[in-house]
Write a protein that binds this DNA or RNA. Sequence first.
DNA 1: CCCGAATCGATTGCATGCAATGTGAATGCG
DNA 2: CGCATTCACATTGCATGCAATCGATTCGGG
Lengths: 247, 247
Amino acid sequence: MHPVQEDRALSTSGINNPSGESVERLRAYLQDGAVRGRTTDDVTGAMREAILDGVLSPSTWLRESELATAFKVSRTPIREALKRLADEGLVVKTAHHGAMVAALSLEDVLALYVIREDLEGLAARLAAVRCPEGLVEELDEINAAMREAAEREAVSELSKLNLTWHRALRTGAANPYLERFLNQVEHAVRRLPATTLVHPGRPEEVLAEHEAVARAVKERNGEAAEQEARAHMRRAREIRLAVLLGS
Amino acid sequence: MHPVQEDRALSTSGINNPSGESVERLRAYLQDGAVRGRTTDDVTGAMREAILDGVLSPSTWLRESELATAFKVSRTPIREALKRLADEGLVVKTAHHGAMVAALSLEDVLALYVIREDLEGLAARLAAVRCPEGLVEELDEINAAMREAAEREAVSELSKLNLTWHRALRTGAANPYLERFLNQVEHAVRRLPATTLVHPGRPEEVLAEHEAVARAVKERNGEAAEQEARAHMRRAREIRLAVLLGS
DNA sequence: CCCGAATCGATTGCATGCAATGTGAATGCG
DNA sequence: CGCATTCACATTGCATGCAATCGATTCGGG
């Protein structure tokens, strides 16, 4: 059910990675001031972000006691967090060996972009039909910020803004299930080694494609918005495969 | 993020339902022979099924200690199970009051069927394109069993077979993400009060619509399969609304 | 030298206990 | 009689301890 542990894992990390190293990097994520009643949630969030940002790479074992020490909490919230992350498909729990960040196979990536094209298309269509107050302005603002970041070649910021743009779009669709699913899709995409925005010329393309979607939304043309969004995702998939396979 | 607690809840149960009653009914779900190492999973599964089958209805408080007693385990696995179910959107946890089965609002149902149409359509298309060995036969078999059940007016069995049919279709699509999402959709749909199959004439319609999808899959006509599946879902939505509002 | 089996160690899984916090009710005051 | 305030209880949240299980290693036999 979960996309895991395939033959051809696209992991960036080496093999036989002793967990201490990754967990060490994890400490940088820790925010003090732990508030009672939100320990587990905080831990879950921190670990999720750590995985998504690649701080914890696949083929490193995550042992409860180690994480507990790093987070300065007991094993209980760690244990719950790992279970939740396992449900999300981000980690794989192996009995008596600990949890491991799940690797994505090439097949998983392909499957991911298939459904992503569908869902992003649906989100664009719904957003266009509803066209809630201020959505177009928000999209344009984010895109403008992206343009500025692209000129400065601030890839990390560009990537974050890109996520923001897509989040805004799906929030505009106002469908809780769609939002949830696209959120899970985002998590899966973020686990891929690098961003596609490093590809030469890709940032400009993205800007243009985003504009095309925003324009369709503004005109409340659901069909056009869906088509533009789908095209955007198909192109993203192409670049992704080029980045993954070409490197 | 989760679909919860709207004004117009479609709950079937009354108000101010003391939890004891529901938890009492839950005991019937208990299988003895608890195996170590799977306690939490068993509990989670049992509670999920209990909620989906309506054994635990909304507006009943689920208190950890009570459930722990009912399941004859400690509060720890109960606690974890509730957290996981909360992540799935099946229960809502209110601080210091316990968890409660989440109610579905009318808006949620509409949103659900919007995305369901999309995803089932995609599943049908992918299944048609791949058309894995034996899929068509499996679909036809299930549909035949459904026909037989419909003639006997075995609604419960019919409903179960219907789920099986859709599961087979999405498994045939061979996309782990799609399968996961449709699984979540199924869970949401199953939480709705009654099945749409009680609607007069609906079973026969469903059979015909399933056949249309299966035919398109057999002909490996992805486009047709998607359209038929989408039409099936649009019709299902209509009936659902009629059942919900008409009653 | 290779293979099988048994033991040891490491790790997770669950039960229990304690602390913190919000709710509800009862009481006193205006 | 209504309202604010306070106190106590019920409930969840996390820490810790113990037991079970599985993998790895080592030892003995062929």
